[in-house]
């Protein structure tokens, strides 16, 4: 699903050039449940942003689903994200002025899907995460766990092959976090490739592939079999 070879990301900081990510070579197979771990500033969010095309690599090659996306333009990435990637963020990133249903339907707006069809699919996705009864509520009227479920429904609605989650349990209490993790695990079992950036040992432990980052370097990739 994800293959990176010698990927680096460098940000110009004034006259200095500081590398954020150096020489990352990585393979996440289709259907994998992967965690990216590491201390703050180790480059794990940058890596996730690169995977999701919110950022582009300065160097190296990146293949997504077998397609070379190393030099994709902003427009190409917008289309690619819309079709093959679902995002889940630590701070949920729902639009406050929209109802749960309209938030969930958002990716379909950018696919040019008709409003009626969008609404039906959004209701279905909300049903799927157990929030069918809350579809007309605004994000502010929902609990943190419910908001994250709405965000997951939104990530799912376009039926993407890849789910990218940046600290999805970071803003939630332990019990709610476990529910969200369980939901992601269920989705993974249903065939989605899931990549989670996390601080939580518990979340990392639940994953079958653990990618460990430190100082912008990929220091270790542990597969399930090694850990056993």
């Amino acid at each position: 699903m994800i293959r990176m070879v010698g990927v680096a990301k460098v940000y110009p900081m004034g006259s200095e050039i500081s590398p954020i990510l150096e020489d990352v070579t990585l393979h996440v197979p289709q259907g994998m449940l992967a965690a990216i771990i590491g201390p703050s500033g180790s480059g794990k969010t940058t890596l996730l942003n690169l995977i999701g095309g919110l950022d582009t690599p300065t160097q190296g090659q990146y293949f997504l689903n077998g397609q070379d996306v190393s030099h994709f333009s902003r427009e190409q990435w917008a289309h690619e994200r819309n079709r093959t990637i679902g995002f889940v963020f630590q701070s949920f990133q729902l639009i406050p002025a929209l109802s749960a249903r309209d938030n969930v339907a958002l990716p379909l707006v950018y696919r040019g899907v008709a409003p009626k069809v969008r609404r039906a699919q959004a209701d279905q996705a909300l049903e799927h995460v157990g929030l069918g009864h809350r579809r007309d509520h605004r994000p502010s009227q929902l609990s943190g766990g419910q908001q994250q479920r709405v965000a997951i429904a939104r990530a799912l609605i376009g039926d993407p092959a890849l789910l990218l989650a940046d600290e999805p349990t970071g803003n939630l209490d332990q019990a709610t976090g476990q529910e969200i993790l369980a939901l992601l695990q269920t989705l993974n079992r249903a065939g989605k490739t899931v990549v989670i950036v996390t601080h939580s040992a518990e979340v990392a432990h639940a994953c079958r592939q653990v990618i460990q980052m430190q100082d912008g370097h990929l220091v270790r990739v542990a597969q399930e079999m090694e850990r056993v």
Partner: peptide, 8 residues
């Protein structure tokens, strides 16, 4: 958010 979800 809209950009992340595929807005060009």
């Amino acid at each position: 958010i809209r950009q992340a979800l595929g807005a060009t």
